[in-house]
């Protein structure tokens, strides 16, 4: 289990992580989703004791990483950049890492086999493709057979077969009861891999929920409504937690009410509606929606003007 409390990292005048609280539970794959620059890698480096938090704490199984008696046997991590001297062979790199914890050579060979590096293990890492580098990072993370595994963007640079392999691997590790925490900036990848999702944007946690809740946009039901009297309908629908967006002059998108409630309200006030379509957000849409205001460098073109009928919406 990983627990962060008020975890903050400030670089100069840049707040990379702004006081986040979250818990990563054992026995399931927890995705850490956020656009580039959101603070995922920084959070993971703080978990691994490599970056010192400006404020707050993070513990792994109740203890700060550096206080574990045998850190590599507790937590294995693949961090985003290659954490390897590229003039050394993959085998020697793993051998040196293993030596710090008296992990036997046999285990080094095992992780090399598992990650499909057997053919290249004796070659210098310099010549590795990004995908092979990722495999080496995963091999290093698994070396101590740790209970907690942290993978920063593990599928970056992997071929499709490798992506499926990572997906199956993390699910398998979680099924064994381990804590698995992996980051990605791709919602689609998370949808296929994670059981639980923590979404981060600009160093703040935006969502922390089971993946299915996020996909279905629980509490964020959207319905497309067409009516001759949009203004009147908007007044009728106004209420706490409800927002209405004018998409076109007779087309509204309503959030916070389900279709039945909208139809009832329309009927009661004698506003005719001629379309009522529940919208199932695509995963990408749900993610965009979640991070819309949080993306650091976004190129989103927003169509329509959001009209929060009441505060508390949107």
């Amino acid at each position: 289990m990983i627990e962060a409390q008020g975890l903050t990292k400030v670089y100069g005048d840049k707040t990379a992580v702004g006081g986040v609280d979250f818990t990563v539970q054992a026995g399931r794959v927890t995705g850490f989703l956020g656009p580039n620059g959101a603070g995922k890698s920084t959070t993971m480096r703080m978990i691994m004791g490599l970056d010192r938090p400006t404020a707050g704490t993070v513990t792994v199984n109740g203890v700060p990483f550096a206080r574990h008696v045998a850190p590599l046997r507790e937590i294995g991590a693949l961090l985003d950049a290659k954490a390897v001297h590229t003039s050394r062979s993959a085998y020697n790199h793993l051998l040196a890492m293993a030596a710090t914890h008296s992990i036997p050579k046999k285990r080094v060979h095992e992780v090399i086999e598992m990650t499909g590096l057997a053919d290249v293990a004796r070659k210098k890492v310099k010549g590795f493709s990004l995908g092979m580098g990722q495999r080496l990072g995963i091999a290093a993370a698994l070396l101590g057979d740790p209970q907690t595994i942290i993978l920063d963007e593990p599928v970056n640079g992997l071929d499709p077969e490798g992506v499926v392999w990572v997906r199956n691997l993390v699910k398998f590790l979680a099924s064994e009861g381990r804590t698995v925490f992996l980051s990605s900036h791709l919602m689609s990848e998370m949808a296929l891999t994670a059981d639980h999702l923590i979404v981060i944007g600009r160093g703040k946690i935006i969502a922390d929920a089971p993946i299915k809740d996020i996909i279905t946009g629980k509490g964020q039901t959207r319905t497309r409504v067409r009516t001759d009297q949009p203004d009147q309908l908007m007044n009728v629908l106004a209420g706490t937690g409800v927002s209405v967006e004018v998409q076109d002059h007779e087309l509204l998108e309503v959030k916070g009410l389900d279709p039945r409630q909208i139809a009832r309200a329309a009927l009661d006030s004698r506003v005719m509606i001629y379309e009522l379509t529940p919208l199932q957000a695509s995963l990408e849409e749900a993610y965009m929606e979640l991070t819309k205001d949080e993306v650091e460098y976004h190129s989103l073109i927003t169509t329509g003007v959001p009209v929060p009928v009441q505060s508390g919406g949107n």
Partner: peptide, 12 residues
Amino acid sequence: TGMARSTFAAVP
């Protein structure tokens, strides 16, 4: 090279 991340993750 970034090796320090591996080194100091193993020896925090």
